[in-house]
Structure formats: C-alpha cells, structure tokens
Design a protein around this nucleic acid. Structure first.
Length: 947
RNA sequence: GGGCGAUUGGCGCAGCGGGAGCGCAGGGCCCUUACAAGGCCAAGGUCACUGGUUCAAAUCCAGUAUCGCCCACCA
C-alpha cells in the first residue's frame, strides 16, 4: 500500500469491478421476488423479502452535475448502499428527463450558429435534432454520477421520452381527458415571449425589479355625448388610474372601482375615453379593486392580466389581445402595431405626456414574473390552453400525508405541502414547443369530432375526413409526475394497461428502444411503492406533490395496490438543504458563484466530497457550503487508509482471522469493541432516520479519535511485544474493528473502504465477495457494550493526558525520561494502572512508573489531580515551584467554583424533589469527585507552601 | 401581506431540557518506525436581545432585532 491514499488510482477500477460484479442490479430480481413473495408472503422479517427502491430524480438531459446533484445523489447512494448491505434487494432506478424547454433551447442555439431557426427545418427534422443532441450529450450527467460512485442500476437507464415512457404519458393524458380532469380553455396564462410558450403558475419566478407607477387620466365622457365630440377642456372630469404597465392600456376594456368607493359611485355605469385609442370604455364596480391603492381606480385589461381576465369574465367584457406570441404589438394596438412591448411603453408614455394625459410617474419597485428557464419577463397572454383540474387530485394526496403514509423529512415541509395543496389551482399543461410529449388529441375539421387517443389516427372515425393532431406538447413536469411508476413498467405491466408495443416502431429513429421482453409486471408489484424520495425543496410543488397525486390516482385500479399505503409513490420524502456558497449566495453558473463537483472530486476524491457533503446535512433548509469540510474528509480518507496500512503491516505471517467476533480479555480490546457496538447502533438508526450529518460526525469521531488516537496507540505495546498470545489478541481485535468500521463507513465512503476491505485477511463467503454486498454489522447481537470498561479507559486516558500536558508545560522533549508516581485511592485503580503501566509508559514516554496508596509527593515535582488520582512527575532541578503553586491554586479555584455550583444545585429542595433520580445521582457523584479533587489540590498546595 | 428557517469560540457549523462540542484557521512542542493530508499539548464562547415556563433553559414559549428562503392577484 502506498503511503498516502490516492483516489484517482483506485476509484475507476473499483467502480468497474462493481459493475462487472453486477452488484448494482436488484438481487434477487423483481421477477424472482414476486415468486418469493408468493411463496413466503411479503411482510416477513427476512430482508430479502423487503426490497428497497429509490427512483432518482431524473436530472435534465441537458444538465451537468452541480452541487445539488452531488448532495442529493450521495444521500440516495448512502441509503441504497446501507440497505443493500442489510440484505434487501435494492434497486436505484436511474434516468434522465427530456427537459422540454431546456433541450429545445440548446438545440435552437446550435441551429442558430448555423443561421437557422427551428422553423427553417420544420418540426420533424427539429425533433430529430433533439434526439441527436441527446445521443451526443445525454450521457454526460450519468457518467458524472458514476464518477461519484453512485450505485444506480445503470443497465436499465430511463429517459422520459423513451417509447414506453411515451405510452405511459399518453395513457395518463387519455385517462384524465376521458374523466374530464383534463380540459381545454381560453384564459390569460403565463406566456414567455422568448420561449414562445405557455408556462404553469409555478414555472414563473418572481423578482423584485425597479419599476415605475404611471398615473394616467381617463376623461369621463359627458352624458349623452358622442365619442368624437369629447374634447379636453378645463372642465373635463377625469378618472386617474395607476399602472406599472402603461402599454397594456391599448387593450383596456374598462376602468374598475370598488363598489363602496364613494369617490366614484356616481361614475359607475358611465364611460371614459381611453386615451390614445379613442375608445369608450365603461366604468364598472368590482370587489377586486383595492380602494386604498393608488387612486382606487384600476384599468382592466383582460387579455394581459390574469386578474383583469377574471374581472372581465364577471362583467362580460371583451378581451383585446394586443400582443403577438413574441410580445410585439398587433393590429389591435393601432398605431403602435409592430413595436415591442418595451418600445410601445416608451411611445405610449411619450404620447400620453404630449397629449396631457400623464399625471405623474413615481418610482415603484415591484415584483415581476420571469420565466424560470430564461428569466424573460412573463407576459400574461390570452390564449387557448390545456389544463388539469387539480382539486379532485389534491384531496387524497393531502390525506396520505396527514395519515403518515407519506412523511417528509424534515417534517416541517409537510406544512408547506399542505398549504400549497389546499390552495391548489388548475395546471396549465400545454406548451407551444416541439420537443416533448405531443398532446394526443385529434380534431376533425370536417365534423366536430375531437378525441384523446392512445393510438394515432389519420382519418376521422365519424366522417372519414383527415384529422389533425393538436400541435402542442405537454409540460415536462406532466411526464415527470409519473416517474415512480412509469419506470416500473406501468402501464404495460399493469393489468389495467393495454397498450400495444407499436410505440417502439412508431418512434423516432434516435430513440433508444429498450426491449420490453426483459420486463414483466413484477416490477410494479414488487417495487412499488418505492421507499424514499430525496430531492431539493424547489421542486416540492413542481414534482413531488404531483407524483403523490398521480400515483394515488393511477394505482387505484391496480389490484395489487388495493390499500392506499400501496398506492403512494414513496413513503419518505427527504428534502435536503439547498446548497449555497460560503457567502450564502445561490450557486449559479452564470453568476460564477458555483462550485463544480467534478473539480471537488479532483481535489478531494469522490469519497472526500461525499463525506464532506454528508457532514453538512443537518436539519437546516439552507446549507452554506463549506469546502474546509471536504479537506477534512479527504484527510479522513487518508487516515483510514493509513490506519489500515498499519493494521496490515502488523499482522503476523500466520495470522488468520477468527470466525465471528474476537473474545479478548484485554481492557483496550474490550473498550474499542464496546465503542464499536455503540457506533453500530447509532449509525444504523441514524441512516434509517436520515440523520446524515450526525452519522458522519459519529463515524469520524470513532475512527479518528477513538480507534486511531487511542486504540491503535494502546495496542502498539502488545503488537511490538514478544507475547504471542497478546499479539494475537490485539491483531484479531484490530482486524475485526477495522472490518466493521469499514462496513459502517462504506455507504458514505464507498471507494476507500472497498479498496481496503479487499485487502483484509478475513474469511469471506461467496456472497461477500465485495464490501458493497457485505453484511451490514448487526448491533445488539453481541455483548460488547461494557460501560465499566469504558469508564476505566477514561481513567487511563486521563493519566496519560496529565503526563503529556506536564511534559508540554515544562517543555520537556519526548526524549527526556520522566519518573512518575501515582497515588491511588483504591485497589481496583491500583490494579488497573499496574496492568496498564506498559501502555502508560509507552504513550506518555515515562521511563519509570510507580503506583501505590501510600505514595508521597516528592519535593521537586509537578503534580496533577485527575480521575481521582494524584500524579507526581519528578522534576528535580527543573520544576519552578512558584509557577507550580500558581497553577495549582488556579486549578483549585476552578474546581472550587465548579463544586460550589453543584453544591448549590444539590441543596436546592426543588431539584431534589423533582429531578430525575439518575440525574441527582449523577450530580452527587460529580460533586463527590470535585470535593475529592479539591481536597487533594489543597493538600498539595499546603505541602508546596511548607516546602 | 402570509409562512418557514437562521442567529453558539476568528471562520463554517453540530447540539435542541440536566456540568458548551466539531472541523478549519491561529499558538506551543514534536519529521515518535500507519499517517506532516500527521502526533501531542494548550488557548479561545455570559450560546443575538428582552421577558416567561421549569428544580433546571443554548435547548421550550412569547416578543424584539438582523439575515435568508418560500408562498401570495395590490394594479
């Protein structure tokens, strides 16, 4: 073994070996499990009968690994690896998302370099280009997951545009269409004029941007006058409205005031002149208007504001759409036609000013909706779109979380979920893109036939005329919402599914067609519901909530999922913290504030990055990423490496590990085994409870501070000794503890642990050929936990530390020998110290060590009171008596102060009456120890003074 | 406008009802035959503030301040 751990040298070969060993595949397979379940039932304690399944949040096919992925996938891999070792058949389904807008943008950018737009090459050719793009770039992020060591089932990689996935999406749409849950409507929706597509409400992000509030006066039309006659005079009455978007006035159809607003009461029902457009529009009264904002009068533009749209509906107002799909003013905008919305604003304002309609402009920062893909300001735009009626779907999805069928970790996210679900609004699912799942609705223009179909048709079944398919595609999130069951072969595996397998042939040539014959209905039966879903908080609504809704809906007809707890897509939702940089700013490629996980792995190794990230996963919602943690983690990997190197170097030629666990009588051995036992319990429970930070810290502390700093050091004297039996005991314990520590560390640090474990001289069964599939240590089955042993080692440590600090205090080089006398108060302690004198001498570099009940403090000595002992270090001619006196008296004061605190507490009647007995006992014992220590210190001070 | 977090040693963070911990940085001593990506020793905090609950509060409750996220139709 090399002197330092070199991740680069081992990561790739290890990963290849895992793949070659087929360890990432579910074992037994879903089909075999289905048989086993039939034979044995599925609820037995046997881990083999309890599969553990995670479906990866599919990264965008355009994506490359960022810190969120690194964090999220480490979490999932930890869960998968731990459960695989427990013996459960694990399956981590992997794949990518076709990412409609993102991919389309990429391909359009590529075309643009050739001077082309998608319209130049046409829909079909464009989609071909998208597939090409995917073939070229789509595996990047998967390869990055491999570099991280993620143990996904790579043999069955999914893509949300796979032919079988397309069939699943179509099944969903057709079902909801036929149930009336999907419907078409004309509404003012969120429109991105750059992507030229509709977006759902939650795809719009809000940014505070500087803006202006324009106050404009609309002349009130005198009763009985004609449009053309309205002249602005000094007597003209006005209504002043306030708007942040003056250009939209071109599409105004009314001015609204609050019904009870006395300022305008008499004007309701009258008309005002819409300046610039010279149109009469009514003054209406509507509760929506806030009389306290601005002037209390609101212009109504139904085609360009979602709220105005609703007001317009209530009052039967016309809807004037003044923008085209790129937000350029149309003919409806009169002389402004052809201007962009920005240019139109400038000209409108200038004209208003010129004509005297502009009252004032005030600064008014406000919230602007922007496209979550390209940050272009959203244009509320009247158009015909497809929607999903969400309320009926949301209701059961709320209940399963209330009932605990689905739990969130941390739990507080459940409230966020409830709040959104209870106020859910219909979901706009149509997108005016080409790359995506095309809406399977067919129209006959000859008759009125319209239908959503699972199979394409070319002629109308009613009148035989040619039909046309809807031009739009579905929101990418519409397809990702079915991920947990679509990747388990639904609907083809479901009794309810009856789709043919023609999709493979019908699909585009670029599509990767996975042979359906390798799949059976076992997947859905055995692996659904999945166990955990780990994800970032920002897609709680976009994705997580919708998976719960669609899962509950589409599993309802599946006979093997009769109970509601079998219909949920997963039982545990882990919402991991958002990764921010050290300054607390969002990591962003474009802002240059991001950190690239690949660089991190380069510097710290995959294990270093993984462990460093896990250390930082606590209950917080924002994680300020700390690269120092990765440095410590890399060093930790190196520490593990070198500890292993030490163990291997110190084994006798004929060493053979004992079967099972070592039965050493040596105190240090019993101590480390006891500590290991406790660690095992905590790590097992910690991973099961998703406490990754705590688990990692615990592993670190055990391995470094206990195993390396103390146990190995304590074992050295035996290892170097001539007593074969003692040497053997120490070696057995070292190997055993290292073996089990590696098992416990493996989920977080898979590479270094696997590499070392392969080198351990332990006997392995055929099923334990690699650490990745080795048995997880079982806590509680052994009897190692021994608190008395732990207490004794603490005493030993106290003695050694006391000697070391004395040495440091007097600047004594390790080469200077020390003569040490220890005064003990009881025979048990005496025995312990005598037995351990070899270790004490070794670890403190003392060269003579005397222990007894009647030891007298030598005149020229430094003394320490610790662990109930008085430790004297002979320092003839070196010790500075005055300094020792000062130190002892400082120490005495400190102990006295501590003691006073405890005595006060113990004399408090309330405490004695109400505190738990074990607490009182603990405090009494502490007070006793402090009292003894104080007495000793005072005795020494008295001696010092008399000397 | 609502909701949710955070505030602990120089920095980054744990702990979340019983005597304040970790990593990094800084200090001293050590190239001790596993590891200098290391070892040993020491130093450093009235746990944001104000009240309250409790025998006992960093930890629970209320409020205040600062920072940050999310949701929301105030033009």
């Amino acid at each position: 073994m090399s002197k330092a751990y070199d991740p680069k040298a081992i990561e790739k070969p290890i990963f290849d070996a895992w793949q070659k060993g087929d360890f990432f595949a579910q074992n037994p397979t879903a089909a075999e499990l289905a048989d086993l379940h039939e034979a044995n039932g599925s609820d037995a304690d046997d881990p083999v009968l309890n599969p553990y399944v995670i479906t990866i949040p599919p990264p965008n096919v355009t994506g490359s690994l960022h810190m969120g992925h690194a964090l999220n996938n480490t979490i999932q891999d930890v869960l998968i690896r731990k459960n695989r070792m427990v013996g459960r058949p694990t399956r981590w389904v992997v794949g990518t998302d076709h990412a409609g807008i993102a991919t389309q943008n990429k391909v359009e950018q590529k075309l643009a370099k050739e001077g082309l737009t998608r319209f130049d090459i046409g829909r079909e050719a464009f989609i071909d280009k998208c597939w090409e793009w995917r073939a070229e770039h789509g595996s990047q992020i998967i390869n990055q997951l491999k570099a991280m060591g993620c143990s996904c089932d790579y043999d069955r990689e999914w893509f949300t545009m796979d032919p079988s996935y397309q069939r699943a999406v179509r099944e969903v749409f057709v079902d909801w269409f036929n149930q009336g849950l999907v419907y078409r409507g004309t509404r003012t929706i969120n429109w991105c004029p750059r992507c030229t597509t509709a977006l759902s409400d939650i795809e719009v992000e809000h940014e505070d941007r500087p803006g202006k509030l324009y106050h404009i006066r609309y002349p009130v039309v005198p009763e009985g006058s004609n449009a053309a006659d309205v002249a602005l005079t000094e007597d003209t009455q006005y209504i002043v409205i306030a708007t942040t978007r003056p250009e939209t006035m071109l599409g105004d159809v009314a001015v609204a005031v609050h019904p009870s607003d006395s300022r305008y009461g008499e004007l309701v029902g009258r008309s005002v002149l819409l300046p610039l457009m010279n149109r009469f529009i009514p003054v209406i009264a509507d509760e929506y208007v806030d009389p306290d904002f601005g002037t209390g009068a609101l212009k109504i533009t139904p085609a360009h504001d979602a709220n105005d749209f609703e007001v317009g509906e209530r009052h039967n107002l016309p809807q004037i759409n003044i923008f085209d799909k790129e937000a350029v003013v149309t003919e409806e905008g009169g002389v402004y036609a052809g201007l962009s919305r920005e240019a139109a604003r400038e000209k409108v304002v200038a004209d208003l000013q010129k004509d005297g309609y502009l009252v004032e402009i005030e600064e008014h920062p406000h919230n602007v909706g922007v496209c979550y893909r390209c940050s272009t300001a959203i244009e509320p735009w009247l158009s015909e779109q497809w929607f999903v009626d969400m309320k009926p779907l949301a209701k059961p999805a709320i209940e399963v979380v209330r009932d605990g069928q689905v739990s969130f970790h941390p739990k507080r996210w459940e409230n966020v979920y409830f709040h959104w679900m209870e106020n859910i609004r219909d979901w706009c699912i149509s997108r005016q893109l080409w790359w995506g799942h095309r809406i399977p609705v067919f129209y006959c223009d000859s008759c009125d036939w319209v239908a959503a179909l699972k199979e394409d048709v070319t002629t109308c079944p009613k009148c035989a005329a040619p039909v046309r398919q809807d031009e739009d595609v579905l929101d990418t999130w519409f397809s990702s919402q079915i991920w947990p069951f679509a990747v388990l072969d639904w609907p083809s595996s479901s009794p309810a599914g009856n789709l043919g397998d023609s999709a493979c042939n019908a699909s585009n040539e670029g599509a990767i067609c996975i042979p359906q014959s390798s799949r059976t209905d076992a997947e859905l039966q055995v692996n659904y519901p999945t166990n955990a879903l780990s994800t970032a908080p920002d897609i709680l609504f976009l994705w997580v909530a919708r998976m719960v809704m669609s899962g509950l809906y589409f599993m309802k007809d599946n006979p093997s999922k009769d109970a509601v707890e079998k219909r949920v897509p997963f039982h545990d939702v882990i919402i991991h913290p958002t990764v921010f940089n050290k300054e607390g700013r969002r990591m962003s490629k474009s802002l240059g504030t991001g950190v690239d996980p690949l660089d991190l792995m380069e510097h710290y190794g995959a294990d270093g990055m993984r462990f460093g990230l896990m250390l930082q996963v606590t209950g917080v919602q924002d994680m300020k990423f700390d690269e120092d943690k990765l440095l410590s983690s890399r060093n930790f990997a190196n520490k593990i490496w070198n500890a292993a190197r030490f163990v291997l170097m110190n084994l006798d030629e004929d060493f053979a590990a004992v079967e099972g666990s070592p039965q050493s009588k040596a105190l240090a051995d019993r101590w480390i085994l006891s500590r290991l036992e406790g660690l095992c319990e905590r790590v097992t429970a910690g991973i099961d409870n998703f406490e990754f930070g705590e688990v990692s810290r615990d592993l670190y502390g055990f391995f470094w501070s206990e195993f390396c700093d103390w146990y190995i050091e304590l074992a050295k004297s035996r290892l170097n000794g001539t007593n074969k039996e003692e040497r053997e005991e120490a070696q057995q314990t070292l190997v055993y503890v290292l073996d089990n520590a590696l098992r416990l560390l493996h989920p977080v640090m898979p590479y270094v642990t696997e590499e070392i474990w392969q080198k351990l001289p332990i006997s392995r069964s055929a099923s334990e050929s690699s650490l990745i599939v080795a048995q997880w240590p079982k806590a509680g089955l052994r009897t190692y936990r021994d608190l008395e042993v732990e207490r004794r080692i603490e005493m030993l440590k106290a003695v050694i530390t006391a000697l070391r600090s004395t040495r440091a205090r007097y600047g004594l080089s390790p080469k200077t020998g020390l003569s040490v006398s220890v005064k003990v108060g009881n025979s048990a302690d005496k025995l312990l110290l005598k037995d351990s004198s070899e270790q004490i001498v070794a670890l403190s570099k003392a060269d003579s060590f005397e222990v007894g009940a009647t030891v007298v403090k030598p005149a020229q000595s430094a003394s320490v009171v610790a662990a109930g002992l008085e430790i004297y270090v002979h320092l003839e001619g070196i010790v500075d008596i005055e300094a020792e006196k000062a130190r002892l008296s400082k120490e005495r004061d400190k102990v006295a102060k501590d003691l006073a605190k405890f005595e006060k507490k113990l004399s408090n009647e309330g405490f004695l009456a109400k505190a738990a007995p074990e607490i009182i006992e603990k405090d009494r014992s502490k007070a006793r120890d402090l009292r003894e220590a104080l007495a000793k210190l005072e005795g020494q001070l008295a001696e010092q003074n008399s000397a």
